[in-house]
């Protein structure tokens, strides 16, 4: 039987990480967590997570950056906000999950071939280019990038969408795409980012 240590080492901490996350708008109350576990009990996805939301709060606060950013937990958060309205300390747990997702994408440390972060990036790229999302085209891009075999298991659903007239192949876009580009460029100036995150 393999014995693995379940508690992290002091040396694995990245000092200041918790404070950095707390400085993100919406995450201010992170350090008020009393580890009651209401979030984990409420969360419909916690049973699938490597670390429950309660553990994530503790790990972030204790600066275990790699542990948190590389876990599937943050990507399994479906943004249902149940934990956020239930938290007795008014911690915006969903928003903390967002801050962690952004950080994981920025540093490129999300689980590779895991479709959720890829979907987020493809979604953002389509919005920047076109201003709008065409869901069927987005899903096809996701299949190509993440798991083309999934197309095979979804063919019946694809046919159903065609049958019900919901399979849209024409890319939706806004008229003033240049306006969108100009807006995002101007907003990005002064935030310390030379260009938007990939």
């Amino acid at each position: 039987m393999d014995i693995t240590r379940r508690v992290r080492f002091e040396a694995e901490r990245v000092r200041g990480f918790g404070k950095e996350i707390m400085a993100v708008p919406g995450c201010e109350r992170l350090f008020s967590c009393i580890q009651c576990g209401t979030c984990s009990g409420t969360c419909p996805l916690s049973v699938y997570m490597e670390h429950s939301p309660r553990q994530i709060m503790a790990l972030v606060r204790a600066d275990f950056k790699d542990e948190v950013l590389r876990s599937n937990s943050i990507w399994l958060c479906a943004s249902c906000y149940d934990c956020t309205v239930e938290c007795p300390r008014q911690i915006r747990i969903t928003d903390i999950m967002y801050a962690l997702k952004q950080r994981a994408i920025l540093e490129g440390v999300y689980p590779k071939h895991f479709p959720i972060p890829i979907l987020a990036k493809e979604f953002a790229a389509m919005v920047r280019r076109k201003g709008r999302i065409t869901e069927t085209l987005l899903v096809m891009r996701l299949f190509m990038k993440a798991n083309w075999r999934a197309v095979l298991s979804s063919w019946r659903q694809g046919l159903g969408l065609i049958r019900t007239g919901r399979f849209v192949l024409r890319q939706e876009h806004i008229e003033r795409r240049d306006e969108l580009t100009a807006m995002l460029a101007a907003a990005g100036n002064g935030t310390g980012k030379t260009k938007e995150t990939p």
Binding site: Y98, Q102, F123, E175, L184, A187
Partner: peptide, 25 residues
Amino acid sequence: DDWNCCGATAYMSVDEHMACVLAAR
């Protein structure tokens, strides 16, 4: 007139500031 995508949960996962800018348009 000429509304754009709100950004949904996906854009918020990539960049909070830009997600707000997009929605704010």
